[in-house]
């Protein structure tokens, strides 16, 4: 209370105004991209049409024709969805075992898993290309991208699930064990319903990371499994001739993810700091 009383009248008005100005500045590039996406390519670079212009949906309607958008978008959806599912299928049992039956080594195993995340991707670029192209023949397949996306997100997913599962009282799980419920039954009927929120937000965050991944999805694909990251990187339009259509395809690529992101801000903190900031 005392703290509130201390704020002067000036700061009561200036403070929120400043906060709003900062927020609008940060959001401006996104707003500008969305706005430009409704301009024709010609209008997009005319100073007189900066704010006032004839809005058009032409850029969105021509996305398929201009960029083959849906092919890339479908690849992004397929790889991100299946990578998320696969990561959870592998990650939930592992996190369950670590949270409820920890051994002496659990801590070390978790730390080691995290350390794999810190390996710079570029260091293993050529071996990955060599293995997948010459040896396994899975270069530029959905299978490969799903596998790689799963592997780079597995440590974070296990970590997040582990912190959620640890919150659940051990007695509940043990009671299930007494009653002779199978491990699968425990996970399916007791654990998942109890930790539903945690599992869902972990999945959401994993999906977002998969969708935005920009190194392996670009370097390990050519056409068949190319995702939206590859599409945008391949169409950077150096001369600014296509600002309108480029904005439309960019908006379509990031819009849904930004909205999903709004719903998992809190989990993001946990997921990215590995539970070290609460």
């Amino acid at each position: 209370m005392a703290a509130v009383a201390q704020h002067s009248k000036f700061s009561k008005i200036a403070w929120p105004v400043l906060a709003w100005v900062v927020a609008l500045i940060f959001f401006f590039p996104i707003f500008w991209m969305v706005l430009t996406s409704f301009k024709t390519d010609a209008d997009a670079v005319k100073p007189e049409n900066l704010i006032v212009f004839q809005p058009t949906l032409e850029n969105y309607l021509n996305m398929t024709e201009n960029y083959d958008y849906w092919r890339f978008a479908i690849n992004s959806v397929i790889t991100s969805v299946f990578a998320t599912i696969f990561t959870l299928v592998v990650g939930v049992p592992a996190a369950y075992a670590m949270a409820f039956n920890p051994s002496r080594h659990t801590k070390d195993v978790l730390m080691w898993m995290l350390s794999t995340k810190m390996l710079p991707a570029a260091a293993v670029l050529y071996p990955m290309t060599f293995l997948t192209k010459n040896f396994l023949g899975i270069f530029d397949t959905h299978f490969l991208i799903i596998l790689v996306l799963s592997l780079i997100n597995l440590p974070i997913v296990i970590w997040m699930l582990f912190t959620y599962f640890k919150e659940i009282p051990k007695e509940i799980i043990e009671a299930g064990q007494m009653d002779g419920v199978s491990t699968w039954g425990e996970i399916k009927d007791i654990l998942i319903p109890l930790a539903w929120g945690g599992v869902a937000s972990t999945a959401l965050l994993c999906f977002i990371f998969c969708w935005n991944e920009a190194y392996w999805t670009v370097r390990l694909t050519t056409t068949d499994a190319a995702t939206l990251s590859k599409l945008i990187e391949g169409n950077r339009a150096p001369e600014g001739l296509f600002f309108g259509r480029l904005s439309a395809v960019s908006t379509a690529a990031v819009g849904p993810i930004i909205v999903l992101g709004w719903f998992c801000q809190k989990q993001l903190v946990q997921g990215l700091t590995f539970g070290a900031v609460k």
Partner: peptide, 25 residues
């Protein structure tokens, strides 16, 4: 709303971020 506006840039994919800034801005 301020929080939502502030967090948004983090979810933009890196390729879009770069294309947006270097071209349109």
């Amino acid at each position: 709303i301020v929080r939502v506006l502030l967090i948004s840039p983090f979810f933009v994919m890196p390729a879009v971020n770069a294309v947006l800034w270097i071209n349109m801005i």
